[in-house]
Nucleic acid binder design. Sequence first.
DNA 1: TTTTATTGATTGAACGTTCAATAAAAAAGA
DNA 2: TCTTTTTTATTGAACGTTCAATCAATAAAA
Lengths: 198, 198
Amino acid sequence: MPKVGMEPIRRRQLIRATMEAIDEAGLADATVIRIARRAGVSAGIISHYFGGKDGLLEATMRQILNDLGEAVAVRRASLPDADPRAHIRAIIDGNFDRSQVSQSVMKTWLAFWASSMHRRPLQRLQYVNDRRLYSNLCHQFRHCMPKADARRAAAGLAAMIDGLWLRGALAPEGLDVDRARSLAYDYLDEQLGRNAPQ
Amino acid sequence: MPKVGMEPIRRRQLIRATMEAIDEAGLADATVIRIARRAGVSAGIISHYFGGKDGLLEATMRQILNDLGEAVAVRRASLPDADPRAHIRAIIDGNFDRSQVSQSVMKTWLAFWASSMHRRPLQRLQYVNDRRLYSNLCHQFRHCMPKADARRAAAGLAAMIDGLWLRGALAPEGLDVDRARSLAYDYLDEQLGRNAPQ
DNA sequence: TTTTATTGATTGAACGTTCAATAAAAAAGA
DNA sequence: TCTTTTTTATTGAACGTTCAATCAATAAAA
């Protein structure tokens, strides 16, 4: 079987299998054997490509964050600079695309959220991402209102986004993306409307 | 040491120690030995009083939910029936009291949130609590607006509350309770203002 | 023939649970 | 009041499991 250049293929397989395993059994029961079996390889290969289980988990979280960042960036790329509302909508859309709002990605994300509080490398990743969401929002709101108000609006909208997403992840019926996006839009319009009707 | 009537004392000690252990090391590393040592007892006592580690975890989650329910109920008890805004504010306040918004309670809550997706007993508890928040809000909003609008407002406010709380739990600087409450109040006023100025 | 990729049995550590042993308090007896 | 007996609470070593990591063996490709 061993062909040359297997590394990127195996890495992708294993990261995907990790999310599926977490979706299926939870982070606590996502053992290396379970993950490896899902990827169709043996357990030893995980240490070979990721240095150990921790390395695989970190790579998986990094993958999700990259996908999120790209989902936002793609939507913002074609927008004119001077349209804060459009940029914030793009940020909202990107967060609710979440590179497929699949069950496995949502559960993996939530599992990492919880465990990031006690694992340095994950904590760093999570913190950077949180700040990015907040400060991007803040920067856009800043075009329409005083600094203090912009901070408030950004904190409120960030909370709204994360809250909608969290409740969607926990609800047995899953996340209603259109409804969530619409609620976030409403909040956004309210913030903009009150401070600067444009 | 053995005095009669130790059971309620030990149960309280162990539940508290569980939260502290989760705060300190995370759910994954909150072993029975660690918890027992924190409570100043031996590991075996956990099985004796809770039937096993799972029983202790379930009892801990139940304790947190009870405290939350009571924090809300106390604030609502003295309110007139016909003041939806006051009732919803009481719900908000109760959720941000959270029987001390301590680090240990917040981290424990988040840990349970994540693991409730894969453990039946915890899932049930979490689901009941989520529905209670949502339907209490819905019932109050119902006094001021049509059903569909009330549902939207309830979903939005519930997301706002959970989102503020979640970001507070994750942020290194902790949760700013006054700011969080004020953001939730603003959202509430906006919902009420738009639909029924009272 | 050499290189690269992969396996899977083995190892050692850590976990939750169990249970015989123990110790203190309470109750009973003197 | 002072023993003795019974009851209740607790301990912690031992046990069986499960996990991640390791590495010698292997097999396919170059």
